[in-house]
Design a protein around this nucleic acid. Structure first.
Lengths: 153, 153
DNA sequence: ACTGTCTTTATGACTAGGTACTAATTATTA
DNA sequence: TAATAATTAGTACCTAGTCATAAAGACAGT
């Protein structure tokens, strides 16, 4: 008479994966009690799924994101970064470069256009959230090597 | 006859601040040996400067950045997110909202304009690095509630 | 030279959030 | 019911620290 037939291992693990994708910053205790299982069980699940421990998850996200920011700050990737005040504003200028385009066509990859604006924005964002307009970049026309992208209000 | 007159406390702390700004992901041991002081000294320095421990630094960067991404994925903040393929492209539409502007003037905060484009770009960026044009948003004119921002190639 | 203060280093107890392993208990199923 | 799978418990250990206390070293002024 199992009053609350707990979900199966497989089910649980599936949900665990989702949960961690949604919010990777919960420790084993929190996750375990979310499923109503012991902490050991949850750890077994994590192991079986190859999910690293909380601190490593923090590290992963932090380093991953830091690289993006660094990729901006370090001029080598984003180009020249002018006047970046974290949390306030930033301006970056980048000459298009071979590495950025399809090597064959010299057409700059569409999503890089995004990236430019976006990564700058990333640097700028901080505590305040809420945005404004419409990012409406839709590959209206291909950008060629040397072209410039202007994001305008 | 101090052969290698170690730098002063003040000097050391100044450099420490810089080092951590440059690369926040070093532990006390690494930092201490970088200065040739004991780990305790370095910890004192950190305390005096109000620099949190490594794990907290990880957490800060991770959570800070995760929020940015989440703020995009979760439509409640960025608005409607259309067609976001991580690592490839993304389009988001957002109606301006009271929360985004200065409550008095109804002028949308300048850096949010950035944020819009940038955070989208963040979502798009992934493995590929290298960007294209020029983000040239310079508060040419104030954006009012309901206005739309168009980033164009 | 001695005192007082600042700085640095040492030491020990404690913490979070784990890993790794062993063992025992509880379900489930053939 | 016996075998197998799943869960739980318990212990020792780890990292990267905190916090408090104490001792040792450096340097200045008198």
């Amino acid at each position: 008479m199992s009053r609350k037939k707990r979900i199966s291992k497989k089910e649980r693990q599936e949900k665990l994966k989702e949960m961690i994708k949604e919010d990777p910053f919960q420790n084993d205790e929190e996750l375990a009690s979310a499923f109503g299982v012991s902490i050991q069980t949850l750890r077994l699940d994590r192991m079986e799924l190859g999910i690293p421990e909380l601190r490593e998850r923090f590290r992963n996200v932090a380093e991953g994101n830091y690289q993006k920011v660094r990729s901006m700050v370090g001029a080598e990737i984003v180009g020249e970064l002018i006047d970046l005040t974290l949390g306030k504003q930033g301006i970056s200028i980048l000459e298009t470069d071979e590495a950025m385009a399809f090597k064959k066509t010299n057409i700059v990859r569409g999503h890089h256009i995004f990236s430019q604006a976006e990564s700058l924005a990333m640097a700028v964002i901080d505590a305040d959230v809420a945005l404004t307009g419409v990012a409406n970049i839709k590959y209206l026309k291909p950008i060629y090597l040397g072209d410039k992208l202007v994001a305008k209000a």
